[in-house]
Simulated assay, not measured.
Amino acid sequence: MARPRSRKKNDLPANLYEPRAGYFVYRNPENGKTYTLGRISRGEARDQAIEANRTFEQRAEQRLINRLHAQALGETFSDWLNKYAEVLKRRNLADNTMRQHKWRIKTMEQQFGAEPFVHLLETRHWAEWLDTFTEQDKTRSAIAWRSWLLDCFNAAIAAGWVDRNPIEPIRAPTTIVKRDRLSLEAARAIICVAREQKDQWIARSIELALITAQRREDIASLQFRKRDAASGWVESDSLYVTQQKTGARLAIPLTLAMPEIGMTLGDAIDACRDHIASRWLIHQTNPHGNSPAGSQIWRDTITRRFADMRDEAARRSETPLWRQDKEPPSFHELRSLSLRLHTARHGKDFAQALAGHKDARTTDTYRDIRGSEWVKLSTDVFKTP
């Protein structure tokens, strides 16, 4: 039960609060977001809150009207979203991708689920909705939502629910990349700092990522041998990886080298073997909190500890390791650097295969095997001129 308001605040309209004397904030009753009104007179704060409450009340009445209209007009947007969820299930998407879809469907249900589907076919409606993200400097969110809605309505066309996609005319917002790329100089400096740490798994994770170009979740899941449900393991002369994001299946040779740090993939894996008994290549080398030695390192921990090493390397460096007008590179930038270095050494087709991306221009060596076989990578095919 909520705490009752003090007597002197009982005259405030719903959703208006006075956390400090003479300072007012308003809470959006639909999503809980608060808006600062600042230090204004009590009367003006009351007027603004009453006006805002009236708007939300009218909107609630309109949603009720829409539900009543929907019974006469046929399907609601919620009806289609339920069908769309079934379409997504048939695509056999990765778990994380499916979670993202479920979250977006839930968001659409909350905002537009009761609307008759035919009322949501106006391009202007969605253009204005997407603009709310760009106005808040959330361009990436606007891009992601546009892409999702485009697919949602394309699926509706394929299912015969509509005959046009209202999202197509909307241009994707342009975004300015804020994060800087990771340079080889910076990567070397970060590895030097990581190798000094008591927790050696930090250096091992960076080395493996730089050599293999795999994502942090795949690096964190690597095991020394094949087990049930394992997504990555060492066997014979290769490191086998089933990428969690794309499902791509790779067999990376242990001879794959990264001369820039003086290591092969086999060297990096051998460095993961220590006096601690563990199934995981990247594991706790010392007890930490509730995690005993040998336990798996989670991907968010990898991200945080990489940032620590990066910042320490920057403090030691006499010259900036990244552009000061950009955000510092994250662990994921190791993947980009790795692919750039492998492209220069082995060619773009090898880098394409190592990344786990499909491309129509790949050679017969890297054909589309539709996930039924392992893509066997061989550095012998690509000779440096």
Rank of each mutant, 00 (worst) to 15 (best):
K9H: 12
N15Y: 06
P19M: 02
N28P: 07
E30N: 08
E30M: 03
L37G: 00
E44L: 09
E57L: 10
R59M: 04
N66I: 00
N66D: 15
R67T: 13
Q71T: 07
E75G: 06
E75P: 08
N82Y: 12
V87G: 06
M98E: 06
K102M: 06
W103R: 12
T107H: 01
M108T: 04
M108Q: 09
E115V: 07
F117M: 09
W129A: 09
L130D: 02
D131C: 05
T134P: 02
E135A: 12
Q136I: 04
D137G: 03
A142D: 04
W148I: 00
L149S: 04
F153V: 02
N154C: 02
A156E: 00
A158N: 04
W161C: 06
R164L: 01
R164I: 00
R171Y: 00
T174P: 00
T175I: 13
T175F: 09
K178H: 10
R179Q: 14
S183C: 09
L184W: 09
A187R: 05
R188H: 11
I190F: 09
V193N: 03
R195P: 00
Q197L: 14
K198S: 06
D199Y: 05
W201A: 06
S205I: 03
I206A: 01
T212H: 03
R215N: 07
Q223F: 03
D237G: 03
K245A: 12
G247P: 05
I252E: 12
A257F: 02
M258L: 15
I261M: 08
T264Y: 02
D267I: 01
D267E: 09
A268L: 05
I276L: 07
Q284M: 13
Q284I: 01
A293C: 05
G294R: 14
G294L: 05
W298C: 11
D300G: 10
F306A: 01
R310F: 01
D311W: 00
E312Q: 14
R315G: 06
W322K: 04
W322T: 00
Q324W: 10
Q324Y: 04
S330L: 04
L337W: 05
L337R: 02
A351L: 11
A353F: 03
L354G: 03
G356F: 03
H357E: 10
R361N: 15
R361G: 14
T362D: 15
T362P: 03
D364W: 02
Y366M: 13
I369K: 08
I369D: 10
I369L: 15
E373P: 03
L377F: 00
